[in-house]
Write a protein that binds this DNA or RNA. Structure first.
Length: 477
DNA sequence: ATGTGC
């Protein structure tokens, strides 16, 4: 990115001053190196988002930001409904409520090494993964609606997991305001057989070991110590979320022009929050969030069953579940000092509420919410904690992952999936995937260095580094 | 991300 247009606001914050159609400035949170590596398209997209009606304070990009559909991936923007604010399908992303959850296992690395290979094979046998994968559940129309309303709460009632899990999920596992009637029959049809499936791309289920601690107080609050084995699940709302995005994007292109909203890019299609379409999208999008929460809850149950078969007595309580493709109505204090209800779009950005936030479970109240950052396959993942002051910086948001450094096609030209699997196996990391092509696309070096990204998030005051996780087993979609 | 590509 050409940094000559940017004003440095701090060691890891860069302002893109408001010019032309921009209603507010842009702010990119990144080190000098990361901002220089970013595509110019990121600045262009940050500026485009800043031109949308009702945007509050600034259009933000996280340290892992890269070019996306309309909004950058790693983009955060909040809108005030009373000031003509909008909601945008492209500002949430197609994989609605894609996110990460991490489970404790109570095991140490040596316990896991003793069963590593059979556990990898059993998890791969039990966890449906890959394009078009289907699960054991086949929802009736009534069950579908109940799932879309109930989220992980519905899944627990259906026998997947326990009540205790729900207190460790954002919104306690179920967002209110979901409207199954706003979800198309096509979206429901695509999801009917896909509950409890991982999907493809960068989605995974990993068994990991915590290998370094950076904040001992927060690690203790999260119940983590060096050598602990955890399980992390990264996936979203599968075909349902994608179809909701497709359906509403089409409608929003028409609606934006009817509402007289001039779009610098048609991919920014949006609707006023206070419009029938805006409300219908919010209802459908919230149903999509509940679908993703239910999906991760069922996958959790499948992982617990696999562990129980090989490691009787192992318990896998939930540490936390976060989403990184959402629009949520939240109360924030804007730069003018006023408290107000805002519609916060986080696309490829994780919520990162700091210490003392009322919505956090009591155990996390003093240290801030766990911010779960998925690494690329074969590399480290990270656990961060929402920082004090994060809410004033980007409405309580942080990065979500490493971010691609290379296109899928470029990765396919450079690597063979089988070689990637063999090389990682030699390092003690077992990969199981239905697709060698997918493995090649997800080769570790096709991604940016996640350590640089989380360091920038920490230095920017968005989230503090708590612990680093190293993979042992990866079930890849 | 995606019954992977207008």
């Amino acid at each position: 990115m050409d940094t000559s247009r940017l004003k440095r606001r701090g060691p890891c914050a860069w302002e893109l001053p408001a010019t032309g159609r921009m209603r507010v400035p842009g702010v990119i949170f990144a080190s000098k190196e990361l901002v220089q590596e970013m595509d110019d398209k990121v600045a262009e997209q940050v500026a485009n988002v800043a031109s949308l009606p009702g945007i509050v304070d600034a259009s933000y990009a996280m340290p892992d930001a890269h070019w996306g559909y309309g909004f950058p991936i790693g983009g955060v923007a909040a809108f005030d409904a009373d000031e003509g604010g909008v909601v945008s399908a492209g500002g949430v992303g197609f994989d609605i409520s894609c996110g990460v959850r991490t489970l404790h296992t109570g095991l140490k690395e040596a316990d896991l090494r003793a069963v590593q290979k059979p556990l990898a094979d059993l998890l791969f046998a039990r966890i449906p993964a890959g394009v078009g994968s289907t699960g054991a559940l086949h929802l009736s129309a009534a069950e579908m609606d109940a799932m879309l309303r109930g989220g992980a709460r519905w899944a627990v009632k259906a026998g997947y997991g326990s009540e205790a899990d729900l207190t460790h999920i954002e919104e306690h596992g179920c967002v209110t305001g979901a409207d199954p009637a706003a979800v198309s029959d096509m979206a429901k049809k695509r999801q009917r057989d896909e509950m409890g499936t991982l999907g493809s791309g960068n989605h995974y289920l990993e068994v990991q070991v915590m290998d370094e601690v950076f904040d001992a107080v927060a690690a203790r609050a999260y119940g983590l110590a060096v050598g602990d084995v955890v399980v992390s699940i990264h996936c979203g709302s599968r075909g349902l979320g994608h179809q909701i995005g497709t359906d509403f994007l089409r409608e929003m292109v028409v609606a934006a022009s009817q509402a007289g909203i001039a779009l610098p890019d048609r991919e920014l299609a949006c609707a006023p929050i206070k419009s029938a379409l805006g409300q219908r999208y919010l209802g459908a999008m919230r149903a999509g969030i509940n679908c993703a929460l239910a999906n991760r809850q069922i996958l959790t149950h499948l992982a617990r069953e696999a562990f129980a078969a090989l490691l009787p007595g192992a318990r896998l309580p939930l540490l936390y579940d976060v989403s990184h493709n959402t629009c949520k109505e939240e109360t924030h204090t804007s730069a003018d000092g006023h408290k107000r209800r805002l519609f916060v779009h986080r696309k490829g950005a994780t919520r990162a509420f700091g210490p003392g936030h009322a919505e956090l479970p009591p155990a996390f109240g003093k240290v801030g919410q766990p911010v779960l950052i998925g690494g690329s396959m074969g590399t480290a993942s990270w656990i961060l904690a929402g920082a004090a002051g994060a809410e004033e910086r980007a409405f309580g948001s942080a990065c979500h992952g490493a971010g691609r450094a290379m296109s899928r096609n470029a990765a396919l030209r450079r690597w063979h999936g089988r070689d990637v699997v063999d090389e990682l196996a030699a390092k003690g990391i077992l990969i199981r995937s239905p697709s060698f092509r997918g493995v090649a696309e997800e080769a570790p070096l096709a991604y940016k260095d996640v350590a640089e990204v989380v360091e920038a998030a920490d230095r920017a005051g968005l989230a503090r580094r708590v612990a680093r996780l190293r993979p042992l087993i990866c079930i890849k979609g």
